[in-house]
Computed example of a mutant assay.
Amino acid sequence: MTIDLGLTHIALPVTDLDCSIQFYAVYAQMQVIHHRIDAETGVAVVWLSDRTRPFVIVLIQTSSVQSVLSPLAHLGVGCQSREVIDALCDKAKQEGFLLQAPKDSGYPIGYWAFLRDPDGHTLELSYGQEIGLTVEQTP
């Protein structure tokens, strides 16, 4: 029997599950890998994954969101290029999701921007942070 070890997920309350699923599909290339109605509470729950690692965002339907991940507390997604970030930020600006325009902060922070999801949680798009490479190279 295989069991999960280490950091596996973050759970976020959301008021409109479909809007949040769409937001994370577009801006973080995530897809639903699990969907259920909780038997005890009747609450809808989905797991989203970008399928690059065994980590998910758990979205939990709720009537209101009391606390959110604010800019300093955020989810971070590595992107393929600065151009991808620019294109996503152009779209986010049009849709009212852009919180912080792209900025180059040099190494190790890289090129990054902040978006706000439909419930106010912050998603960082970045290029050049090398977090995955640092983890792999650290003994």
Score class of each variant (00 low, 15 high):
residue 51 R to T: 01
residue 128 G to P: 09
residue 20 S to M: 01
residue 48 L to S: 04
residue 14 V to G: 13
residue 69 L to F: 14
residue 25 A to E: 10
residue 52 T to E: 05
residue 60 I to W: 10
residue 7 L to N: 11
residue 134 T to I: 07
residue 79 C to F: 09
residue 139 P to I: 01
residue 9 H to D: 09
residue 113 A to D: 03
residue 30 M to V: 02
residue 65 V to A: 00
residue 39 A to Y: 02
residue 86 D to M: 02
residue 19 C to Q: 10
residue 25 A to T: 10
residue 124 E to T: 08
residue 95 E to D: 08
residue 70 S to Y: 09
residue 98 L to A: 03
residue 24 Y to H: 01
residue 37 I to P: 02
residue 11 A to S: 15
residue 1 M to G: 15
residue 48 L to T: 05
residue 72 L to P: 04
residue 96 G to Q: 00
residue 60 I to N: 04
residue 76 G to N: 08
residue 53 R to Q: 14
residue 97 F to Y: 08
residue 95 E to R: 00
residue 32 V to G: 07
residue 130 E to T: 08
residue 106 G to D: 04
residue 62 T to I: 13
residue 73 A to M: 14
residue 134 T to N: 11
residue 67 S to G: 03
residue 123 L to G: 10
residue 128 G to W: 06
residue 83 E to V: 06
residue 6 G to M: 08
residue 7 L to Q: 11
residue 84 V to T: 14
residue 107 Y to D: 02
residue 74 H to Q: 13
residue 135 V to M: 15
residue 23 F to C: 04
residue 133 L to N: 10
residue 40 E to A: 10
residue 115 L to I: 02
residue 37 I to K: 15
residue 30 M to F: 08
residue 100 Q to W: 06
residue 74 H to M: 06
residue 45 V to E: 06
residue 84 V to F: 03
residue 132 G to T: 07
residue 119 D to H: 05
residue 25 A to Y: 03
residue 64 S to N: 14
residue 23 F to S: 00
residue 78 G to T: 15
residue 63 S to V: 07
residue 128 G to I: 09
residue 48 L to D: 00
residue 29 Q to D: 12
residue 109 I to W: 13
residue 131 I to E: 13
residue 137 Q to M: 04
residue 36 R to I: 12
residue 53 R to W: 02
residue 131 I to S: 12
residue 118 P to L: 08
residue 23 F to N: 01
residue 96 G to V: 00
residue 17 L to W: 08
residue 62 T to H: 11
residue 92 A to E: 04
residue 104 D to C: 05
residue 112 W to Y: 11
residue 26 V to K: 10
residue 50 D to A: 04
residue 77 V to H: 14
residue 68 V to M: 05
residue 93 K to W: 12
residue 3 I to V: 15
residue 105 S to D: 09
residue 121 H to T: 05
residue 5 L to Q: 11
residue 8 T to W: 01
residue 45 V to S: 02
residue 3 I to K: 14
residue 128 G to R: 09
residue 103 K to A: 02
residue 69 L to D: 02
residue 92 A to V: 07
residue 132 G to Q: 13
residue 124 E to W: 08
residue 70 S to F: 13
residue 103 K to E: 09
residue 3 I to Y: 12
residue 108 P to E: 02
residue 82 R to K: 12
residue 113 A to I: 03
residue 66 Q to H: 12
residue 98 L to W: 01
residue 101 A to D: 11
residue 101 A to S: 12
residue 77 V to R: 10
residue 116 R to M: 05
residue 102 P to Y: 04
residue 61 Q to R: 14
residue 1 M to N: 08
residue 4 D to G: 07
residue 124 E to G: 06
residue 110 G to K: 06
residue 61 Q to I: 06
residue 119 D to L: 01
residue 57 I to A: 08
residue 138 T to A: 07
residue 45 V to C: 00
residue 58 V to W: 07
residue 67 S to E: 14
residue 13 P to N: 10
residue 25 A to Q: 09
residue 59 L to P: 03
residue 36 R to N: 05
residue 111 Y to H: 10
residue 108 P to R: 02
residue 22 Q to Y: 07
residue 88 L to K: 11
residue 99 L to D: 05
residue 124 E to V: 07
residue 117 D to K: 01
residue 115 L to H: 00
residue 109 I to K: 15
residue 20 S to D: 13
residue 101 A to P: 02
residue 65 V to F: 06
residue 45 V to Y: 00
residue 96 G to I: 00
residue 121 H to Y: 08
residue 22 Q to H: 12
